[in-house]
Design a protein around this nucleic acid. Structure first.
Lengths: 205, 205
DNA sequence: TCGTCGAACTTGTCATTGCCCAGATTCCTA
DNA sequence: TAGGAATCTGGGCAATGACAAGTTCGACGA
C-alpha cells in the first residue's frame, strides 16, 4: 500500500518536501514570486510555520529547487520542439514556454543571487546542446565544422528567441502589436525567419 | 546659494523626495530590488521611518518613480546611440545600457503589477520611435513605406538586441562565451549583423 | 521486546518590514 | 499674524523569515 499515508491528524506529513514544491509552483503561477511566503505555504498544507525549514534551509533554497524544476520542464519543451528537426520549431517552443510560464521564466532568469545548482546547470546545458545541434542542421555540416561559426550562429538564434520571449512576456509592446493569438505567433515566426535568412546569407566578417 | 540646505537638525529635510530617489537608485544598484526597504532608506537619510510615506504612497510608488527615471536614462542612451544613423550603434547602446544597469533593467521589465505611469509610457514610446526610424533608414524608404513591414523589422531588431541584453545580463552563458570585453561586444555585433543581413534579404512571406 | 536515536514537526520568540494613525513642528499664504 | 497645509515624528499592528528548544514518530539494533 501507499508508503506515505497522510491522515489529517498525522504528526508527520508524509512527503512535505514534494507538497511544498507543488504548492509553491502553483502559488508562483498564480500570484508571482514576490508574494510567495513560506508561512502561507505551510498554512495551506496544514503544517506549522516552521515545518518548511526542515526541507529547505531558507526561502532561497526553496526557490532554487523550484528553479531547477522550471529548467527541467523548459529543457523538455525545447527538446520536444526540436524533434521536428526544424530550428524554427524549437524557437516557437521556447517562446511558447515563456508565454505559458512567465513567472517561472522570471524565476529562471533571476541573476545569480545564489550559485546555480548542479541540476539547473545540467538542464540549461541540455537545452543549449539541443539548440546547437539544431543550428548545426540548419547551416549544414560544412559551416558547422567551424566551431566559432557554429556557436556564433547559435548565440544569435538564442538571442532572437530569448528576445522575442522577453518582449512578449515582460514588455508593454507598442499599440498595434498583437499580444497573443496567431497574429502574434506569425510576427514571431517572421522575426525568426528574418534571422534565419541572415544565417543563410551571413554578413561578411 | 543652494536652495536646499539641510542642516542635520532641521525638522524639514529640504528635498526628501529627491534624496529618497537618489538613495534608492544607488541602493538598487548595489543590493538589488528585493532588499530595498523604505525603513532602511529613511534611516540612511536620517529621517523617521514614516517620513517616506509623505512623498510616495507606498513602496510600489517609489519603485514606479525609480522606473520612470530608469526609462528616461534608457531612452536617452538609445537616442544617443542612434545619433550616428547606424542601426548597429543603437543596438550596442541598448545592450551596453543593460549591462551597465542590470538591476534597473530588471526594474524596468517587471511586468505590470501596477499600471505604467505616463512618464514611463512616454519614455518607452520615445525609445520605440527612435528604433523605428533607425530601421526605416536601414531598409530604405520604399520598404519603409509599408508600415507592416517596417514594424515587423523593427520588432525583429528589438527582439535581437533585447535578447542579447538578456543573455548577457541574466543568463549564465555556456562556457567559452566571453562575459564582457571586446570579444563579447564582437559577438553581439556579429549577431546583430546577421539579423541585419536577414533584414536586407528578407525571407519570402 | 525494548530502548534509543534521528528525522520530522511543534510552539515560542525575535528582528525586519510595510503600512496606518495621531500628533508635533514648520512653512506659507491670505 | 492667524490659520491651514505640508512635512515629519513616534507608536503600533500584522506579516514574514529565521532561529531555538521541545515533542512525536518510526526504524533499527542489542
Amino acid at each position: 500500500m501507499a508508503p506515505r499515508k497522510k491522515p489529517a491528524t498525522k504528526y508527520h506529513h508524509g512527503d512535505l518536501r514534494a507538497a511544498l514544491l507543488s504548492a509553491a509552483w502553483t502559488a508562483v503561477t498564480k500570484k508571482g514570486l514576490e508574494s510567495l511566503s513560506l508561512r502561507s505555504l505551510a498554512e495551506t498544507l496544514g503544517v506549522s510555520h516552521a515545518a518548511p525549514a526542515h526541507h529547505f534551509k531558507d526561502r532561497n533554497a526553496l526557490l532554487e529547487a523550484l528553479r531547477a524544476e522550471a529548467f527541467r520542464r523548459f529543457a523538455d519543451a525545447i527538446e520536444a520542439g526540436a524533434k521536428t528537426g526544424e530550428l524554427d520549431g524549437m524557437g516557437v517552443s521556447y517562446i511558447r514556454f515563456a508565454m505559458e510560464h512567465p513567472r517561472q521564466m522570471q524565476l529562471m532568469l533571476r541573476e545569480g543571487e545564489t550559485e546555480l545548482g548542479p541540476e539547473v546547470m545540467e538542464q540549461s546545458m541540455r537545452a543549449w546542446q539541443v539548440l546547437v545541434s539544431a543550428v548545426a542542421t540548419q547551416i549544414g555540416p560544412t559551416r558547422a565544422a567551424d566551431e566559432r561559426e557554429l556557436h556564433s550562429m547559435a548565440l544569435a538564434t538564442w538571442a532572437m528567441v530569448h528576445g522575442l520571449a522577453g518582449l512578449w512576456t515582460q514588455v508593454r509592446l507598442p499599440p498595434g502589436v498583437p499580444k497573443s493569438g496567431p497574429d502574434a505567433e506569425g510576427l514571431q515566426r517572421r522575426a525568426i525567419a528574418t534571422l534565419l535568412a541572415g544565417v543563410a546569407h551571413p554578413p561578411r566578417r
